[in-house]
Amino acid sequence: MFIPVEAIPPSFKGFTLILPAIAVGNVAQLAVDLIVSTLSMKRVGYMHTDCLVPMVGPNPYATSAEDAGELHTTAEVYRDAEKKLAVLQIRSPLIQSRSRKFRKLLVSWIKASEFSRTVVLSSSHAYQRDDQQLKGTPLRYLVTPAMRTASGPALAELGWVEMERLSPYPGLVEAEPRLSIPGGGVTKGLFTDGCQEELCLAVVLVFCSEGDNVPDAFTLVNHLNEWLLLVDNDKRGAQKWKVPGSWRLLFGSSHPPSIF
């Protein structure tokens, strides 16, 4: 359930929504962190639901001592009116038995809010790629029929590669190729629901392995930026993303000096 921070609910009509799927290496959540932090987006609401494991913490995007103590919750919605952009950040895992309920909740919220398009960021196991996927870029995209009509050949013109439909039994020609996103969590379900409900939805994903997934997050968000132009390129063609303070100590506390 979406609960606005202020008494007057914000309007999302015609906005682009970006949301992460909880998947391998949390790449999508890291990428969303970079977007919210760089654009200094304003928190406008909470997604309060029993489908996600509860967690709270201090402000992950704190810029000063005053706002550092602000309480932030499991799933929150951020908004940038100028860029007509909304972002849903999800910070904890989904409760497995409620995954379908969560997808329904998202789809009905997306419809009710009248977003013009939705972009789901995701990741998939690098080790489960087949031979053709091993070559070239690790980035893939998927679009629903409604999105294909709306955006036309824009994504293909950028040189993006569409996610391949794979044969479930390699070598057997008769088997019908099907979409498979191993390690992608709700990605496939959300995409299928999006097709059925005629949502204007795209999935942008990267193949990765678990470990230090910060470089994957930069790869994904730079790739997304080619399409949505969220931040300007500098002279050398690189983007300036702002890493949030909450990324400190990703691998735990430092070593106690007394052990050496």
Partner: peptide
Amino acid sequence: LLEQPNIFTGIQAAVLSYCQVNQIPAVA
């Protein structure tokens, strides 16, 4: 106050989330 990158999980997190969205004063 708790500082980043630490978080609370469990009942304390569920209670604080509920109180935050329903505007109830709460401290954990």
